[in-house]
Every structure is written in structure tokens, then in C-alpha cells.
């Protein structure tokens, strides 16, 4: 997993994720929804990531699964970068 991407993902999460845990230290595979991220917060996370990385999540990735953990988000961002 790309550590620069992961760091940016964590910083977007700490701004928009409404997490009850510290987004900088939460486990890469921890369930963000269980950690307090509401569905509306996940939308803000998505928009924040699109701004930061200058990408657009394709429709098939606009699912809960994409935004479920630091790892899943980082993988999605990497995959979109490589497309």
C-alpha cells in the first residue's frame, strides 16, 4: 500500500470522517462505519478524497465497501490512479 496515499487518506478521514478514534492511528483494516463514520460523513470523505487526489470515483466504486477502511480506500485510490 502506498504510504503517501495512505497518509492523505488519513488526513481526509480526520477532517471529514467524524470518527470516534484518531484517524492517524486507527488500524488500516478497522471498520470506519463501526468507528462512527455516518453515511453522510462517508460522502464528505469521498468528496474530500476527490479534491485531494484530483480523481473521480467511478460509479461502480461508490459503495460502502470502498469506504469501509483505510486499506480499502487507499486501494481504491491507487487503482483509480493506475487506470
Amino acid at each position: 500500500m502506498d504510504s503517501t496515499i495512505e497518509a492523505t487518506v488519513r488526513s481526509v478521514l480526520s477532517e471529514q470522517g467524524k470518527l470516534s478514534e484518531d484517524a492517524q492511528s486507527i488500524a488500516v483494516d478497522a471498520d470506519l462505519y463501526r468507528a462512527g463514520m455516518t453515511s453522510h460523513a462517508s460522502v464528505n470523505v469521498m468528496l474530500g478524497l476527490e479534491d485531494e487526489f484530483d480523481i473521480e470515483f467511478p460509479e461502480e466504486r461508490l459503495t460502502k465497501a470502498t469506504f469501509t477502511s483505510v486499506a480499502s480506500i487507499t486501494e481504491a485510490v491507487e487503482a483509480i490512479h493506475h487506470d
Partner: peptide
């Protein structure tokens, strides 16, 4: 944004 909310 709605796509994500609908899917959830």
C-alpha cells in the same frame, strides 16, 4: 454523492 448513499 447520492449513489454512495443509495448503495449504503
Amino acid at each position: 454523492a447520492g449513489k454512495l448513499l443509495s448503495a449504503g
